[in-house]
């Protein structure tokens, strides 16, 4: 046995980095909304970055550990506690069997990611463990977690070679958990309080009126309550085309900002459909998608123009940082093994 869901929270699902290669069949990519947080959490427990973790949204679950294990929580700060004591984010945490992990209110951000050593063991469907809620496939029986669910953990390929586990287990003494006294520095990543999202103008940008184009980058948009894993519906300055466009359905992607006739933009998120037919005004730079995923309904967002070239450079820099973190953690783990 592994982890038991005592209370499920608002929308707690098993996610990995998504289901690639099946969009031509109309099957969405999905995956974690904040991929950066899931990847980091996986690094911290010694997993591959694409191992299945738990995506926890706004109102978190209460989880009972049926065995001891190494975990990490990254992403939004949803006030996690183990047996009533606060747990710090962005570091490995060794949890004793019988402990209860509970999430509270969203102090910062909107989505937290829980990784466990080995990753959650749910069946691979079409190459991924991601939960596709609409199609009812993947994850835990194709649905969000519910009370009483018991989620198994995969055994790590190489048993016990992750030094953090052993060091923390030794440090634990009689407490219910032990967190590492080091963590991945927040300074390496976007602050979840930043309100500016970088956007590359899209194919139909020039088809919007001059007022709409300048309002899009100059004004603030509110994330409405009708925002979910499929898309963020925004409300603010309405966007108008200079003349109607005859568009046929074509591919849309995560971060595509489309504008339906009523004029309020929609940012497509992880569970977007594969194709769409509305005019596209912009695309959120991939590097800023994790940040956007942490916006709560009701919050205000502002868009800043970025060129495609700049967006790709920023992404390459981010990935270089991720690589350094990954290697650093591997070295740390390896050193512990020898020592």
């Amino acid at each position: 046995m592994s982890i038991e869901v005592i209370k499920p929270g608002m929308n707690t699902t098993i996610q990995d980095l998504g289901r690639n290669g099946f969009q031509k069949y109309g099957i969405i990519v999905g995956g974690a909304m904040d991929t950066l947080a899931l990847r980091l959490a996986n690094y911290l427990v010694g997993n591959d970055e694409g191992a299945a973790g738990m995506e926890i949204t706004l109102k978190g679950p209460r989880l009972l550990f049926h065995e001891e294990m190494l975990i990490a929580i990254c992403g939004g700060d949803l006030s996690p506690e183990i047996n009533g004591e606060p747990v710090a984010l962005n570091r490995p945490v060794w949890v004793r069997k019988g402990s209860m992990l509970q999430f509270g209110y969203a102090r910062k951000g909107c989505r937290a990611y829980l990784a466990v050593e080995g990753g959650f063991d749910v069946p691979i469907v079409l190459g991924s463990r991601d939960t596709n809620l609409r199609a009812g496939i993947g994850g835990y029986h194709g649905r969000a977690l519910a009370e009483g669910d018991i989620i198994q953990r995969q055994q790590r390929k190489q048993q016990g070679n992750y030094a953090a586990s052993r060091q923390l287990a030794e440090k634990m003494d009689y407490a219910s958990f032990a967190a590492a006294d080091w963590h991945i520095s927040q300074s390496l990543f976007p602050s979840y309080t930043q309100s500016c999202i970088r956007v590359i103008p899209a194919e139909h940008f020039a088809c919007f009126t001059a007022e709409s184009r300048s309002a899009f980058f100059a004004s603030e948009y509110q994330i409405t309550p009708h925002s979910d894993r499929m898309g963020y519906r925004l409300s603010g300055a309405k966007l108008e085309l200079t003349m109607p466009l005859e568009l046929t359905s074509e591919a849309v992607t995560v971060g595509t900002i489309q504008v339906p006739p009523e004029g309020n933009p929609i940012v497509l998120m992880a569970d977007r459909q594969t194709t769409g037919g509305y005019p596209k005004i912009g695309h959120v730079a991939t590097v800023d998608l994790p940040l956007l995923a942490q916006f709560k309904p009701g919050e205000m967002v502002r868009f800043q123009e970025i060129t495609l070239r700049e967006a790709q450079s920023a992404l390459l820099r981010r990935e270089a940082t991720m690589k350094r973190i990954k290697l650093g953690l591997q070295l740390f783990s390896g050193r512990g093994e020898r020592g």
Binding site: N20, F22, Q23, E250, L315
Partner: peptide, 21 residues
């Protein structure tokens, strides 16, 4: 290349900018 999506008049090709840098 990650994958491709054919539509009425277009083929969209998804790629990994890191691998292509």
């Amino acid at each position: 290349m990650v994958e491709y999506v054919p539509a009425f008049t277009t083929v969209t090709v998804y790629y990994d900018p890191v691998l292509l840098s």
